[in-house]
Design a protein around this nucleic acid. Structure first.
Lengths: 337, 337
DNA sequence: TGACATTATGACACCGGTGTCAGATGGAGG
DNA sequence: CCTCCATCTGACACCGGTGTCATAATGTCA
């Protein structure tokens, strides 16, 4: 079983390397007869072009890098699965690169990654998609990238996000409609733009229903289960206790649920709880969490698809899209009485 | 900012390409003075060798592929995180490749992956690590690989696993010690060797304590939350109802807990529940799940580390290791009364 | 001091593709 | 029948490194 290279194909077919290369890349100016002949040899010898050699010649790697720093495992796997779908469709591969936004060496780290891996492009997921410094660096280095769930408004960046503000608004309104007025809110990580967007949606809903915002009901979390547990403690210790809690993601909501149950509070009778993201845990616990479904896979899929498009044939105008978030009601929210 | 290649370094340092290459690869037979000089130029020009060119010349990609087909997101991210740690330590990168074991086209799929990506090696996680067909294929193709959590006994395969049988034994014994004799068991996916190992540990503990195995208490799951929910229904409908349930992983255990709670059963007073893996969900729900902690990251880290070692300098004897699993007791198990 | 082993260095081909350009071929138009 | 242009094809350099081998420089020993 010896290696089949472009040379052996060329020799076998009785044409030049270059002609084989033309057929390989679907270039014009090859006579139908020749093309047919070469294609037949491809099949016969089971020829597979060497992507490394091709990469060297074209200065491409056919690899997309995916940057993340997110405490939620399910978010990461959803991101990966969307990215992989787009990659495989176009014969790219995905290289994952978790790293810390806050590390002083972020830019160095990415620079290192780019030079040691020759990535063709980068997908930035939150919180990286909100880092102007990183985006500036990539622009200057002329690296293609796409932003997922970014708040940055920028004509030059491929960007796919979902409507966090509207989602949070609808969820809050859902609680208000159920008769809740004292609705606690647990914020996410301050580095993520989603944190502010969701908080804004919450505030807008209160405002629209003429419910004053109570600072005492707002807790600072960071999207981790642990931070949710801390916030839950603070909130459940309040007197009077709010009748509902809206956590900025499902993990923190699950932490609230756990503490509430430990304290013998009945959910939703004594306390309504809502989350955000529709993570698996939202339906794995009892009562199931009312939440907002974000199309994470779809966002990432579209972002990567556009990124690859941009790589293969640079466009002047760049793809930007906002997908809709969707309210999912489960057992954790009920009327206030 | 023009490209710094080995040629420019050579020219700048006044030596040949080859000498630069020697310094780059720490080869002997370079005079200290020359080496020093070249190293200085590296710094000065901020030279980074092009891994693609190097890959072409050496027929290497410095990329490890990670194969998985596992319903548990947390398992996957733990696998990835261990694999990444080892990869980055040795300047490799990780390419992830989820695919289906059962697809008739598995071998084709992997063949395709290998030829389009030129991976230097493959980490097989369950259930792939138990596929003799795949392993045979890789051997024949001369591809380096490492097995994670495999039951296959084979002197030629790098393998790191944990002691599932013993873990299940200890967990079952824990339940028996608490006074339980009617202990239901939910099996995992039949393609995973862990499924049989865990079941064997359960049976051995029963046997050792002279408790007859009751077929009616054994349910077939497949590690998914959904299958756990189905099994839970079957088990909780039994009369008499068992006093404890041991699910082969935490997701299925969580499903049992959810159904039990929905049916107003008190856990652990009315029903003890235990899982396996120590997935995040085990501590995110109330009551927390008694479970067995598996060192997933560590297994994968060691496997990849050995794989890379094998790639860079082939060994005659191959690394094999069994790590210990550890019982973690939480609130979901208590004495039977 | 000469014979020989050892170390240091560079010239050159090569990995497996792609880009450039020149030349061959064939058909249309005068 | 010749000119001109469009279409096809291949020779060759190149991408940025590594492997092989010849040769130069240095050291060792008799």
């Amino acid at each position: 079983m010896k290696k089949v290279t472009i040379n052996s194909v060329a020799q076998y077919a009785g044409v030049s390397k270059k002609t084989v290369s033309r057929v390989l890349n679907n270039e014009p100016n090859v006579s139908p007869a020749t093309r047919e002949k070469v294609l037949k040899v491809f099949k016969e010898l089971d020829y597979r072009p060497n992507p490394i050699a091709r990469g060297l010649a074209r200065n491409k790697s056919f690899i997309i890098g995916c940057l993340y720093d997110n405490p939620s495992k399910s978010y990461i796997t959803r991101v990966q699965s969307g990215a992989l779908e787009a990659c495989h469709k176009h014969n790219y591969n995905l290289l994952i690169h978790p790293c810390e936004l806050r590390g002083e060496a972020l830019i160095d780290n990415i620079d290192q990654l780019l030079t040691t891996s020759r990535l063709d492009g980068l997908v930035l997921t939150p919180p990286f998609s909100d880092s102007r410094e990183l985006i500036e660096f990539l622009k200057q280095k002329n690296i293609n990238y796409a932003l997922v769930a970014s708040a940055i408004q920028d004509d030059e960046s491929i960007s796919v996000c979902s409507n966090d503000e509207q989602g949070a608004f609808e969820l809050t309104e859902h609680l208000i409609t159920l008769g809740h007025t004292d609705i606690a809110f647990i914020k996410g990580h301050p580095d993520h733009s989603a944190t502010e967007n969701r908080f804004n949606g919450y505030k807008r809903a209160l405002e629209q229903h003429q419910i004053p915002l109570q600072e005492r009901l707002v807790a600072e979390g960071n999207f981790s289960y642990h931070s949710g547990a801390d916030s839950a403690k603070a909130i459940l210790d309040l007197t009077p206790r709010p009748s509902a809690v809206f956590a900025s993601n499902d993990y923190m909501a699950a932490a609230v649920l756990k503490l509430a149950t430990q304290r013998q509070l009945r959910v939703p009778e004594d306390l309504s709880i809502a989350g955000f993201d529709n993570a698996p845990i939202a339906r794995h616990i009892w009562p199931g969490l009312t939440t907002i479904a974000q199309p994470v896979e779809e966002m990432t899929r579209q972002a990567v698809e556009q990124l690859i498009l941009q790589i293969s044939e640079p466009q002047d105008t760049v793809y930007q899209c906002v997908l809709e978030a969707r309210l999912i009601t489960r057992e954790s929210t009920a009327a206030n009485h």
